[in-house]
Design a protein around this nucleic acid. Structure first.
Length: 152
DNA sequence: GCCAACGTTGGC
DNA sequence: GCCAACGTTGGC
């Protein structure tokens, strides 16, 4: 089993939105970056654990955990001209973009803020803390995941 | 709202 | 295949 960190702007889709979904499951659509796409398509597997990160808000940070329940399949929002994620280069024959389904596991009683993460010496290697890192899907090590759960 | 850091696009 | 211009991300 592997561990990941998924970023989302809470204004767009928050952990509360995930919890409110039917069966508490939602597809993780709209990823339009090739590196992140490759991970969603090839590496993220059912059963993997996901740290749910709120970005572009005050404060940014990890707000809970989700679990992958369905692995990489074509992101159908790319086929919908009405969608803001529409991409005419992606077709049903040759899908360009992929997504996974995740299920709500828990919401932390309080956010583990970006600042908290920076303070923790065990997390200095975390990709999310690297300068300039903008990937919305990043791998997390088992040790990092464990450390973060202890910070709750 | 600013702006640094990136990724993507497209002319050449 | 280079690289300038442009768009986006996301912390501050």
């Amino acid at each position: 089993m592997r561990y990941w960190l998924f970023k989302s702007e809470p204004e767009t889709f928050s952990i509360d939105d995930l919890r409110a979904r039917r069966n508490q499951i939602e597809h993780w659509d709209g990823v339009r970056n090739y590196q992140a796409r490759n991970m969603l398509r090839d590496e993220v597997k059912a059963g993997d654990q996901v740290l749910f990160y709120h970005s572009n808000c005050k404060p940014p940070g990890i707000v809970g955990v989700a679990e992958v329940v369905k692995e990489g399949y074509p992101d159908f929002t790319a086929w919908n001209p009405e969608s803001s994620y529409y991409d005419p280069r992606s077709t049903k024959e040759k899908p360009q973009w992929f997504m996974v389904d995740i299920k709500f596991v828990e919401k932390f009683p309080q956010i583990i803020s970006l600042d908290d993460l920076k303070q923790n010496s065990k997390l200095h290697e975390m990709l999310i803390l690297r300068k300039g890192n903008r990937l919305s899907v990043t791998p997390v090590t088992a040790a990092e995941f464990k450390t973060i759960l202890k910070m709750v």
